[in-house]
Nucleic acid binder design. Structure first.
Length: 112
DNA sequence: GATATGACGTCAT
DNA sequence: CATGACGCCATAT
């Protein structure tokens, strides 16, 4: 299992109309402190069926430079993500990842 | 193994 | 708010 695949899984669970930050994704994927690598993994995301537009920087800031950034904003607005100035309204559209469960009872799918 | 590269994050100016 | 320095770490060369 590669780093890329784990990150990919997390990104895929961001619901439509919501957004998450690189750092949050890194944490949710089990690699805290690897926000940059998340960005790296998203290169070519468009060719990977990944909702790359739902990944933004801390505070909802769009970090993609130039046209790509405009593109991202449009895509987000298209799916209903709200903006406040140049940033995503994380307060309203920030996706909270479910906390990692250690409780065996609630563990589901591929138990082993 | 050594260096270089980033769609990052945080803290200090 | 704008910069800059630094830490971070998977890949690329």
């Amino acid at each position: 299992m590669s780093y890329f695949e784990n990150v990919r899984r997390i990104v895929l669970r961001i619901p439509r109309g919501r957004a998450a930050t690189y750092g949050e994704i890194a944490r949710a994927a089990g690699y805290p402190g690897t926000a940059r690598q998340v960005a790296w993994a998203l290169r070519g995301a468009s060719a990977q069926h990944l909702p790359w537009q739902r990944v933004v920087g801390q505070g909802g800031r769009i970090l993609l430079p130039g046209d790509a950034g405009m593109n991202q904003r449009l895509r987000l607005e298209m799916e209903g993500v709200l903006f406040i100035g140049n940033r995503v309204d994380m307060k309203a559209c920030g996706f909270k990842f479910p906390p990692a469960r250690t409780d065996p009872k609630s563990r589901r799918r591929t138990p082993k």
